[in-house]
């Protein structure tokens, strides 16, 4: 399986990654090679195989419904590039 430039553009958009125009051919080659490696999977008959999402055959544990967290806004927002009045700021979103 090889990918072309439009695949790279599409997937970069989906993943919200800005890729320099000049780097696109490199990504095309790399991703095509990687998908070529992955291709071998297609040859395996897996009709009756149950997919394995997780290494351990275990069930989800449940947490008691208790409020255990306290307000740490100041500490958390100390990490943020832009805040105002307790809000995280991003460029204006148009709906």
């Amino acid at each position: 399986m090889s990918v072309d430039q439009s695949d790279i553009t599409k997937v970069a958009l989906l993943a919200r990654l800005k890729i320099d125009e000049a780097d696109v051919p490199q990504y095309v080659e790399n991703l095509s090679n990687i998908l070529g490696l992955v291709e071998q999977m297609g040859e395996v008959d897996t009709d009756n195989v149950v997919p394995m999402a997780h290494p351990l055959d275990a069930a989800q544990r449940l947490r008691a419904d208790e409020v255990t967290e306290t307000d740490q806004r100041d500490a958390f927002q100390g990490l943020a590039p832009q805040v105002e009045s307790g809000l995280y700021l991003v460029p204006k979103v148009i709906e």
Binding site: Q82, E84, S85, G86, L87, Y88, L89, V90, P91, K92, V93, E95
Partner: peptide, 15 residues
């Protein structure tokens, strides 16, 4: 929630 009232051309986010 995104709060769209104007923060100098920005949107505020309350999580």
């Amino acid at each position: 929630k995104s709060l769209h009232e104007d923060f100098h051309g920005s949107t505020g986010v309350d999580l």
